[in-house]
């Protein structure tokens, strides 16, 4: 169990910039013009797309399989709107394909 002072300083710096980013947005309460209200309406859509798309292919050389099973999962999400079922169908199909020896 050791804690080096210089490492603690780096952690505190990381904490400061991370907490700062999280807090700055939440504390800003000035009334916004309509353009920026519409801007915020698109934040989840744009950010989620940015989180999803580059993370789909992965780095194990199974990109095609993962793209196709993601499309299937998106279909399940659209029809059912149930999170666990979407993940189960997507991840399950991916594993079934893997066990069948598909590697694409």
């Amino acid at each position: 169990m050791s804690l080096r002072f210089e490492i603690l300083l780096v952690f505190l710096g990381m904490c400061f910039v991370t907490f700062g980013s999280r807090l700055a947005g939440l504390m800003l309460r000035a009334p916004l013009p309509p353009f920026w209200l519409r801007f915020l309406r698109f934040v989840p859509i744009s950010v989620f797309a940015a989180l999803i798309v580059p993370a789909i292919p992965g780095d194990q050389g199974q990109g095609i399989m993962r793209v196709l099973t993601s499309l299937l999962a998106a279909f399940v999400a659209w029809r059912t709107r149930v999170l666990w079922l979407t993940v189960l169908v997507g991840f399950g199909t991916f594993w079934v394909l893997k066990l069948l020896g598909v590697h694409a």
Partner: peptide, 17 residues
């Protein structure tokens, strides 16, 4: 392949939006 769960979860979160 558990890193695949992250984009799948967010797919379920974005579709209804």
């Amino acid at each position: 392949g558990v890193d695949f769960i992250f984009p799948l979860s967010f797919t379920a979160l974005i579709v209804p939006l």
